[in-house]
């Protein structure tokens, strides 16, 4: 009798759960980056994925020299580091802290715990008129899906945005195209960022980031500059 009771209970249980516990997803599984993503290792500076050096134009090299000289004299001019302002893209991906991604039918939004940075990737066909909108620290981003890959095109960045903390500059021709794809049955997220800036670089180049899915982590949305943050000692940081 007890066994029968348990079996009936299990059947009833499934019925309750199916009827009352359903949480509808508004997006199809292969168009959903929702989750917490956290890198196991990050480089200290941005480098092309093929290991080559950055392909500066002559003007770009001169811009980089000026910017890097200024950072030596006045490190606080890097306000992303000093005042925790948004780092911009693709520098925001160089983070030892987790990222919350949220996909809806209209957009995918990335919330970077570090510096409380937000990248809104709207599924619309055209960028906003830069004469009316922006510029923005995190750029103006439009996105679309090609199969299971989200392709996001960001441009219209504020001048002071650097591509990394060492002082890689950009011009107003700068754009970065990011390709997001889940790997290993959704356990990892790959981001390939392709940088184009004909004034600063002789050709486009790409850099790659990989993050682990971390359902066990809650992203902290209340980052305050200079106050204690989560322990990131397990994240390998280096060249």
């Amino acid at each position: 009798m007890i066994r029968v009771s348990i079996a009936l209970a299990a059947v009833l249980c499934l019925g309750f759960a199916a009827a009352a516990g359903a949480r509808p997803s508004l997006v199809q599984p292969d168009h959903d980056l929702t989750g917490v993503w956290w890198a196991r290792a990050i480089p200290s500076r941005i480098v092309p994925a093929n290991g080559a050096t950055l392909p500066y134009t002559q003007a770009g090299r001169a811009m980089a020299d000026r910017l890097q000289a200024r950072l030596k004299i006045d490190p606080q001019s890097d306000r992303a580091r000093h005042n925790c302002l948004p780092k911009g893209l693709p520098r925001a991906f160089l983070t030892a802290y987790p990222i919350q991604a949220l996909s809806t039918p209209e957009q995918t939004t990335l919330f970077f715990e570090e510096n409380r940075q937000v990248s809104v990737m709207r599924y619309i066909p055209h960028h906003h008129d830069p004469d009316v909108w922006g510029p923005f620290y995190m750029g103006d981003t439009i996105a679309h899906w090609e199969g299971d890959t989200l392709i996001a095109d960001s441009r219209n960045f504020i001048d002071e945005v650097m591509l990394d903390a060492s002082g890689v500059p950009h011009s107003d021709k700068f754009r970065v195209v990011q390709r997001f794809r889940k790997l290993n049955a959704g356990k990892q997220l790959e981001v390939v960022a392709t940088v184009e800036d004909p004034e600063v670089f002789t050709r486009s180049w790409s850099t790659r980031f990989v993050y682990d899915r971390r359902d066990d982590v809650d992203v902290d949305t209340s980052w305050i500059c200079g106050e204690p943050h989560r322990d990131v000692s397990t994240v390998k940081q280096g060249p």
Partner: peptide, 29 residues
């Protein structure tokens, strides 16, 4: 006993959602 056991198991399977069903996807959109 059966009903009580079912409620306990349902609670384990879907703690609070069982008490608070979600609106339909069409409503949420």
């Amino acid at each position: 006993r059966i009903v009580l056991a079912a409620l306990v198991l349902a609670g384990l399977a879907s703690p609070a959602a069982a008490d608070h069903p979600w609106p339909s996807a069409a409503t949420l959109r």
